[in-house]
Design a protein around this nucleic acid. Structure first.
Lengths: 409, 409
DNA sequence: ACGGTTTAGACAAACGTTTGTCTTGGGCAT
DNA sequence: ATGCCCAAGACAAACGTTTGTCTAAACCGT
């Protein structure tokens, strides 16, 4: 891995992790234990507990059945009735609220009852009260695509580790959905939003982090690949192998990276003195996540009968389609044409021939996005506007030194 | 807006008020029109609205800033204050509650104000009140795997079409997470759960639908492939091509389908008179989603130097690894060994050679699971315990008639 | 016996909705 | 004028939590 600059850096002095769980323990216990005393009961002690624990299952039994025949979960109030306490006290015990004095014996009673009835607090109610949901939204074009899901995997890892949950929604690049879902997600209490490869239109009232965001939007942190570096890696690689006549494939207009990636290629090509010829440039248009994406455009390219010794593909999926088109035209990869992909999705390594490609650290990008989002949600103000992560050249079998004896024309 | 197909509400029965009724103080004393009348009483049009819409932005301005500097969203109460109405009325208008008479003019005023302040109801509060969240949980082993995400894609499609949202969580087959997440998801208000390839341990108090569920559990509808049919398709195919010496790959113990699929293979093999030899049977163990899964086990198999002309792989990913192992041992696919995969994940069609495989209609299975879940959540009682979907044989390039001139030994 | 401090918990008010019941005046027919 | 109905909307009680304030008893030292 090459030493690389990062355009942004998230500081280290961040607020500590969100306490989604309740684990703070205050060691107040042990204060007594001798007491075989009566239950402290305010009005009088003669009338015993209104609900004796043994008998007053009624309090618990009163939970009504819901329509599915399942039992309604026990609430704090039910539990409190059963224990002869008030809900607030039970809440205090169960959350270990500091600064409240509750005798160890009571604490134990409460906890025992909670276990016994398998009490689960309603996050809904808690969220409403605390105005804090520990939930974020993830907006993604498509769930069945390797690129997106690898990023999501990283996002999910980090969020779950930190005790957050997330709603995900997919939009298939349809503008009205891209418009509508953020609203719905916020309505559901998302405290932040992560978008993947999405053309978000405008700012939102919560922190937003984009992975491969399409454009700069105020308040949106963009986690992107360092495209300049990526272009350097691929073009230098081909250049060193002796390639001078290189065909390029541009991404679809709706895809986030298309533009940046292209600009970087143009810039690096100039630096290297490589010519980018219009008649060797092909443009992806279709919204596909299968190799069929790359097949027809390369076929067209071949029909022009222009000589080229290498092809820079927009991504691995298209590269696989491209290789197929080349083979179907009786050209060998890499002997006649070198092909370099982009992304390093899983299949790249197991394609035949194994794909040389530029690896995007997709899972890392997802984790990074989630980390930045959480920091921003915790009020961290000093976040970068853009966060570039370094790509990596993975040399495999689809690139080779230019072949003087190529059967290519 | 919401899928309001509420079942027969039994609502009339007033909940018993076990805890002393709390007397609410009338909360309208904060109307700071001290000099003025109390409330704009009903028909009196002479005293204009206490909050003239033009002036009383104050009511709206009162929404406090939250810590991130973003504005708190306007609530019903704010809106109502601004309009000089009570929150209930505003709610009634905005939800078009039938059977309430509100004059058209008022309705318009309310709607205009809602638009003006971009009012978004809090689904949190609504859910709490209605005891209905329109949310389900999806539990999946791994997000970055083609199989799971294709199913999720179908699930997501159906849920979003029906106005539901979902939390997803992944567990990487770790038993404690499989134990814990369902609880957490329910705590968050999930009204139902879909699991994918997950060894759920016990029943839950909400409807559950499993895709490729591992075992029968009361209350869990299992959406599975018709494994018997799948085995028939693959074995008949090989049998017709003349294969008699067939190697088999068994799935990992933790994977849902392993067992069913194997039993079906055994059963169909018997019907066809095919022998299943232990020394031609290999067993997957590792928890991988890359072709590396299949590589070493096939290497081991080859070292035994037993002749076989075909291999039935547990899935496509492993088949790709297997093909690589075969090639590395200088065997050609399909000339020397036919290989048949399972699943028909996307890359199967674009691998070289293109994979013959048994297609699981994964997206359909996801949609089906979601559909069944929603029906069950709506109280539909008459659901099947198991729902089998038919597979399909996809004949491509990795299977061929058995070759008498094979270089295989 | 006295005042002061702790302790153990009750109480009530939120959070933002929805929904059953009530109230009030106006309009209408008698 | 009287009675009745109806329109329009207020009112209050939920849903299940959390949290600031309050109180009664117990404990303490003198």
């Amino acid at each position: 891995m090459q030493p690389l600059k990062e355009k942004g850096e998230v500081g280290a002095g961040l607020p500590d992790k969100a306490g989604a769980g309740e684990s703070r323990k205050s060691r107040h216990n042990d204060s007594r234990g001798a007491g075989e005393e009566k239950r402290p009961q305010y009005g009088s002690k003669d009338p015993p507990l209104q609900f004796k624990e043994g008998t007053a299952e009624s309090a618990v039994a009163r939970r009504k059945e819901n329509k599915n025949g399942g039992e309604k979960p026990v609430s704090l109030k039910i539990l409190a009735d059963y224990l002869g306490l008030c809900p607030a006290t039970v809440s205090v015990v169960l959350n270990n609220v500091p600064g409240r004095s509750i005798p160890a014996e009571t604490r134990e009673r409460v906890r025992a009852a909670a276990r016994k009835f398998n009490y689960q607090p309603s996050l809904l109610a808690r969220s409403l009260r605390k105005q804090r949901t520990f939930t974020v939204g993830v907006l993604v074009p498509e769930l069945s695509d390797g690129y997106h899901t690898m990023v999501m995997s990283g996002i999910g890892d980090h969020l779950m580790r930190e005790g957050y949950f997330y709603f995900s929604a997919h939009h298939r690049h349809k503008p009205d959905m891209i418009e509508e879902y953020p609203r719905l997600l916020l309505g559901r209490g998302a405290e932040g939003l992560i978008t993947i490869d999405t053309a978000l239109a405008h700012a939102l009232p919560v922190p937003v982090v984009a992975v491969a965001g399409h454009r700069k939007i105020a308040g949106v942190t963009n986690v992107v690949l360092d495209h300049k570096r990526a272009a350097e890696l691929s073009l230098r690689h081909l250049h060193q192998l002796g390639h001078r006549q290189i065909a390029f494939m541009r991404g679809q207009p709706f895809s986030a990276d298309s533009d940046d990636r292209w600009k970087s290629i143009v810039s690096v090509a100039r630096e290297l003195g490589l010519e980018i010829r219009a008649d060797l440039t092909i443009q992806l248009e279709r919204d596909l996540t299968s190799p069929e994406l790359g097949y027809p455009v390369v076929q067209e390219l071949l029909q022009k009968r222009r000589k080229f010794t290498a092809l820079v593909s927009f991504n691995d999926i298209a590269a696989i389609g491209a290789i197929r088109a080349l083979r179907d035209a009786n050209l060998r990869v890499p002997e006649d044409v070198s092909v370099i992909g982009f992304d390093d999705i899983q299949v790249a390594a197991y394609h035949t021939p194994r794909l040389t490609t530029i690896r995007q650290p997709l899972r890392d990008m997802g984790e990074t996005a989630a980390r930045i989002l959480l920091q921003r949600m915790q009020g961290f103000r000093d976040y970068p506007e853009e966060f570039a992560v370094p790509p990596e050249l993975i040399t495999r079998e689809t690139t080779a030194a230019v072949n003087p004896r190529s059967r290519r024309r």
